[in-house]
Design a protein around this nucleic acid. Sequence first.
RNA 1: GGACGGCUAGCUCAGUUGGUUAGAGCAACUGGUUUACACCCAGUAGGUCACAGGUUCGAGUCCUGUGUCGUCCA
Length: 907
Amino acid sequence: MDKAYQPTEVEDRLYKKWIREKCFLGKIETDKPAYSIVIPPPNVTGVLTMGHVLNNTIQDILARRARQQGKSVLWLPGTDHAGIATQTKVERALKDEGKSRMDLGRENFIDHAKLWRDKHGGIILEQLKKLGCSCDWERNVHTLDEDYSRAVISAFVKLYKKGYVYRGQRMVNWCPSSLTALSDEEVIMKPQESILYKIRYQILETPGAYLEVSTTRPETIVGDVALAIHPDDPRWINLQGKHVMRPINPQAMPIIADEAVEKDFGTGILKITPAHDRLDFEIAQRHDLPMLEILNPDGTLNELAGPDYAGMERFSARKVIADKLREDGNLIEEEKHQNNVGFSERADVPIEPRLSEQWFLKYPRVEEAKKAVKDGHIKFYPKRWEKTYLHWLDNIQDWCISRQLWWGHRIPVWYKKGKMRSDPANWHISEKPPSDIDQWEQDEDVLDTWASSWLWPLATMGWPEEEAMGEKGLDYFYPTSALVTGPDIIFFWVARMIMAGLEFKGRPYKSDKAIPDSEIPERIPFNDVYFTGIIRDEQGRKMSKSLGNSPDPLDLIAKYGADGLRHGIMSIAPKGQDIRFSEERIEQGRNFCNKLWNVSRFRSMSAQLEDNSILELIVLRIQGDVLNEDDQAILLRLVETLDQVEKLYGEYEFNAVLQTIYRFFWNDFCDWYIEASKARVQESASKDTCLAIQDICLRHILLLLHPVTPFITEELWFLLGFANGNSIQGMAPGTGAELLEKLSIGGLQLDTNVLDEMEHIRELVTSMRSLKADRNLSNNREVAFSYVASDEKADILSRHSKSILTTVGGSALNRVDVAPTGMPALVTPFGAIYLDLTVGVDLSAEKARLQKELVNLEKIVQSVKAKLNNQAFTSKAPPEIIEGARHQLLENEAKLNETKEALSALT
RNA sequence: GGACGGCUAGCUCAGUUGGUUAGAGCAACUGGUUUACACCCAGUAGGUCACAGGUUCGAGUCCUGUGUCGUCCA
């Protein structure tokens, strides 16, 4: 074995072996419980980020743990076609060649995009393999696969037939950069420093009188059709029915009254631009005002804006029109103003509210989706996201699902050629095109990407084809066991998958009929949802490509190993909190692996390895009469650790799991047990027993760690002889009770009292080390110690004296009747312990130290005494707390006396 | 404007239903290559638990308010 663990070779070799042995295939084995996870499909052309590392490490931990527990596990991988993102990338590449998608035409463009996808796509999947992800790669799914596409189209048709899908002329969020409509969820509100312009409009009926109106968007004045006031606003009550002159492209416009006007904003008068503002649109509809559309799809002004402005880009037009207003004396005031502006999530440009004909979806199963979470059929971890989820569902708006893109699932709607498209009589909506296809033309649009990925848990498992569902095990693996994702897509994806599952899984219900409660558990797509935190950089900024602050996970893997990266990232991932990334933690992950490697190496160097393939065989090597307190204590701590880990996994407390294992492995096992057993392994009487205990501990440590660090644990599993040819993957660490039972077949009974005793011994050892260290004697093994103690305590000490001296590094531990004079001392659970020094003691420094301790102890004794004398405490506090306080008092009083004695012995 | 979350050692964070003297890792400092590991070991120091009130025998923990940072929704 190498002195330092070398992950690269091990990881590549073992991953190949696991694939070769088909360890990750999700098999339908009805005699076993199923455990399934569907991966949140990354963008097909994306690359691995730290967010993916976190997310997928967690999924892998869950999958591997379930495999250890003997479940039949399916972790289903795949990728998302990511409509806008991918199309944008492909178009950008085309642009570099001087071409546009229009030059290619739809079909050529899609072929081109597919080539692009096949070339750049799937990189991320290879990266996941490097990370060690145990996905069933034979079931890899892409959302544009033929089967998957059929499912998407089928869902659309089903929803249309049930009346959930409709086409309508509506205000939508328009992205002038991507040239498509977006859903509300794809609009990011960002606070912006804008200018609030106060503009005057002349009142026609009262020449010379003006109304002042505030707006941040003066370029839309050319689209104004009215001014509006609140009907209850006393300032403007007599303006109703009068008219004003539009200051740009002068034209008379009515003044109307509408309750939607905000009285307190600006002057309380609102300009109405119906075609370019959602609220204005609603008001205009109520008042039967004309729509004046002055913007082109790309955000430039059109002919209706007038010859002076036509063709001008929207933000230039804003300046030009403001200048014109100023020139004409119609601009009263400009002030800085912070407002929220909606940006396109993908293109990051301000969106334009625009009147447009689109396909909309009225969400199915909203009530049932709420119920599924409220009634606990779906559990969120952490729970507080439930509130966010329910709030969104309570305020849910219809979903604009058509996108003016080519990369995606083309909407299965055909229109009669030459007829009105808005009339449903001229529609053919079906999975199959009409038979007289040349009489029809298909809708040019594609579906929102999320309108395909919301079917992910269903469509990846064969839905809606009966045969495919059987083959892929929909009934066996669905609902999936857990979903692991970020809270940023709770609306985009999580909520929508829940609604899709409720609507489509199982037998159909009419849209006005609720799904019966009894069917909710089998229709929901997953039982648990674990929301990860968002990974931030060391300054707390969100990691992003544009900031360049995200490290490349592959670099980290090369530097620290996949196991090191996984361990590191998991140890800093508190439940539901954002994660501050730090490379130091990844380094710690690597160090952890190295420590594990070395303690295993040490074990293999101590003696020939025995047959370790079955736990019982190891247990039988233990001789009950040789078993000492160290042995008992480490086994008891192992029992505790097994149970704690089990419990913490149930609550998805991953970093607590890691901490628990770390403590047992590093502090209890390496720092204490291994050190203490060094002497005993040298003696033939205790050697076998001691090594057997080491083997039991190592075996369970490997099993506990395997989900987190799969490579090194598998490697050591073989090297330490636990394997007997079999991978660690199918072995469970088991519970504490199971371990106790196995131990009992060797006739071993553990006494939990030794835990306290060992705790005291460890305190003693720490004190003794400290006595030495403070005098720079830590490398001197010839120092002697003396102590004064009762018979009972002396008895314990004599039993442990050997390991105490080994671990402390001392030559003798002598019991004396009276405190020796002039020696430095510390008070321990066993009384005062004296460092036997013949020379060089700084008496005044020793005194000062003991004096300080004395003050501290007196303070504690005082406060506990006061507490016990307080009748309110003794009458109200529970008995065990009072008992604890009494105990504390006795203990500290004893210490106090010892300290006094040690102090007086100094002089 | 509303909702949620954070504020504990220099840094990153634990701290379960209120109950002994508030913990860990990293960093710092001191010492150390003793038959695993310097990717290591031992030791030391470091905290008015954001602030102000309140409930309680007892508050980091519960309640109210304030500040501050962040996220989401308007």
